[in-house]
């Protein structure tokens, strides 16, 4: 039983999270920004699973389930907001929506 080294496993969520951050910073399209946030949430969930697997406890998977719930709630509200912004500003550029007072 040769376990995969923990420091190798930990590189993957770090890389995925960094890619998500880059996506949020670089892209101006709101749909892409939401996708990058999903990538980051998924990386956080992966980190929980890795920690749970390291100690062989179910707690990591429970926290992943809660992250999954959070992601579903966040996507539904985020996509509704995107539909609203698209309807009002007729663009998906995040720089166009820089005023809180519509």
């Amino acid at each position: 039983m040769t376990t995969i080294p923990l420091d190798h496993v930990l590189i993957l969520p770090v890389l995925l999270f960094a890619l998500g951050v880059i996506g949020v910073l670089v892209r101006r399209n709101l749909v892409f920004i939401l996708m990058s946030i999903e990538i980051m949430l998924n990386a956080a969930g992966l980190m929980f699973i890795i920690a749970g697997a390291r100690w062989g406890q179910p707690d990591g998977q429970v926290m992943f389930l809660l992250v999954l719930t959070l992601a579903a709630a966040e996507v539904s509200v985020g996509l509704a907001l995107i539909i609203r912004i698209r309807h009002r500003l007729t663009t998906l550029d995040s720089d166009a929506a820089d005023l809180l007072q519509g």
């Binding site: 995969i4 993957l12 969930g45 992966l46 699973i49 697997a53 062989g56 990591g60 998977q61 389930l65």
Partner: peptide, 11 residues
């Protein structure tokens, strides 16, 4: 699939 290899089939 990474979850699967880490021993978390439910996740």
């Amino acid at each position: 699939l990474v979850f699967f290899t880490l021993g978390a089939p439910f996740a």
